[in-house]
Design a protein around this nucleic acid. Sequence first.
DNA 1: CGACTACA
DNA 2: TGTAGTCGG
Length: 350
Amino acid sequence: MGVDLSDIVEDCSKEISLNNIKGKKVAIDAYNAIYQFLAAIRQADGTPLMDKQGRSTSHLSGIFYRTINLVENGIIPIYVFDGKPPEEKTQEIQRRIKIKEEAEEKYNQAKEQGEIKSMKKYAQMSSRLTNNIATESKELLINMGIPIVNAPSEGEAEAAYLSQKDYAWASASQDYDSLLFGARRLIRNLTMTGKRKLPNKDQYVDIVPEIIEFDSLLHKLGITREQLIDIGILIGTDYNPEGIKGIGPKTALKIIKKYGDIEKAIGKEIDEKEILFDYKQIRQLFLNPKVIDPKTSLELKEPDEEKIKRILIDCHDFSEERVVNAVGRLQKAIKSSKNLERQTGLDRWF
DNA sequence: CGACTACA
DNA sequence: TGTAGTCGG
């Protein structure tokens, strides 16, 4: 689940109103978003939304409606899809597969005992983002007129690159990895709806979008990007999920600030024998990830209403009324988004 | 998760 | 007009 920087980042994380993102392009980590939909859009017993053929449609519902909401709010989403993960991620990918298999097992047990709550919990944990789900999601987005980018490798890295090169104003993900990849801004909780249920509790909390600005984060912590990466490596990243035993975010920050980098802390607060990974190589994965330059500006396009209807209504049994209504909202929203862009573009000349 | 409905 | 509850696929 990426690098857990929450403890050292939270002081720098500021609430942001959707109004402040109006007219801006946001590179969305598509896998992160789709995974949330797959996990969350389910019935009480954990059954996902399905068409008549029993194929899951949770991802389509989630992408469709959330994207329209974003565009209605003047935000221009750019969905960034993962490519081939680096070799170094293999171990973490295997670990995740194992967790899902175990969750499936527990789901079956809960099902036998008719424990609805557990069924949902383990169904959520075992949700998988298949190639087919990614392909279907891309097809829907393209027909909605939403720009997508196929990352050559890590989506988070590509999203960070897009923000560095000004193809996007910010990147959006629940994970902090794009900060290690150098994203200029990271938006978390990029969603409209406020109240969310706390896991396992009958309590509700307000979920609001928040932003972390890369430069102010580094300034506030008094470190460089290289040092932030070293901190991440000590805590544990997708390339070394185990991190270093006994070192959490707070300790990692303290160590790196005191010694400067991992090398200089070895033999002091870090026992060399505890480093069971090639930290220099992992550093390079974050500093020089494989990315592509899209070369062309990423813009909204006119949606293809007929194609969207064919996908959602004909193929996946969505309600015609709902889809037609939503497509109408989307068309209108894209038009005003174009107007907004034209106006702010003109403003620069006056 | 987000749309939509029911109800104060 | 706001929100708790349920449905969607």
